[in-house]
């Protein structure tokens, strides 16, 4: 469904993608794993056309996202949904109006139909009855669930999730994972999830991609990744501080650095 070809991108001296090529299959859940600052969120934004890469191609159903006009891009976006890291609800609108927003913008549905759709989506995320609440009155988990309900309100073909479970309690995280799976299994929604939650990634993914400073270091099914002998992948999965992936920001030896300060 989405194909990335030779994508390269950098912000100043930080490389977020180094000749990345990969494919996201229709009706699959693909999880992009990677440490903080490894370029996964940027990649997600570029796939949705929110940011332009320095070079390379991103094909969405054969159309190149980076070359579309604004009008064409907005047309494509009607079949996309995105759950932002902070859910990005409009804080001046209550839950109902937040969910109704895309419907009122792009459809001519009557208010009664809109009401029904919202009730259905809120039931899916377990928040029916919270229509009148303002975003400031919601907890973190509830905010993400409302954000998810809004992302799927137009029944998109593909949903992008930017760290859907980060900062959530285990139950809320589990609920979100289940929702992602349900959407995929029952409605065939293609899902691209950016995350660093390994446990949840292995639970929901059909395919896992591990990104490390702009390079794909592994790609495959969860089982393939788990049984990989690669030291980098093992270190990442086990979360161990020692290994080929350096924890420290600098290569300079700590003792040398300290001593030079006192000379």
């Amino acid at each position: 469904m989405i194909k990335i070809e030779n994508l390269s991108n950098r912000y100043g001296s930080i490389i977020t993608a180094n000749n990345v090529s990969c494919e996201f299959e229709c009706s699959e859940v693909t999880v992009i794993l990677g440490g903080s600052g490894s370029g996964k969120s940027t990649l997600l934004k570029q796939m949705a056309g929110l940011a332009r890469p320095n070079s390379g191609r991103i094909l969405f159903e054969g159309k190149e996202i980076t070359c579309l006009s604004k009008k064409e891009l907005y047309e494509v976006r009607k079949s996309m949904g995105m759950l932002f890291q902070g859910a990005a609800l409009f804080n001046s609108l209550n839950v109902y109006d937040n969910l109704a927003f895309p419907l009122r913008e792009h459809t001519k549905l009557s208010e009664k139909v809109i009401q029904t759709i919202i009730k259905m989506k809120l039931e899916m995320v377990g928040l029916r009855g919270s229509e009148h609440l303002m975003p400031s009155q919601l907890s973190g988990g509830m905010t993400k669930r409302v954000g998810l309900a809004r992302a799927i309100i137009m029944d998109p073909k593909i949903v992008f999730y930017d760290e859907p479970t980060s900062g959530l309690d285990p139950i809320s995280a589990g609920v979100i994972d289940k929702l992602i799976l349900d959407l995929n299994r029952k409605l065939g929604v293609t899902s691209v999830v950016v995350s660093h939650d390994i446990e949840s990634a292995f639970k929901i993914a059909d395919k896992v991609i591990i990104l490390f400073y702009g390079n794909i270091i592994a790609s495959g099914t969860p089982d393939e990744i788990k049984s990989s002998p690669d030291a980098k992948i093992c270190q990442f999965i086990n979360g161990s501080p020692d290994g080929p992936i350096p924890f420290s920001h600098t290569d300079k030896d700590f003792m040398v650095d300290m001593r030079s300060q006192w000379k």
Partner: peptide
Amino acid sequence: ITDQIPALEMMAVD
């Protein structure tokens, strides 16, 4: 900051 502007973009609203 809170991604509401990209969210509008994602909902195909300028």
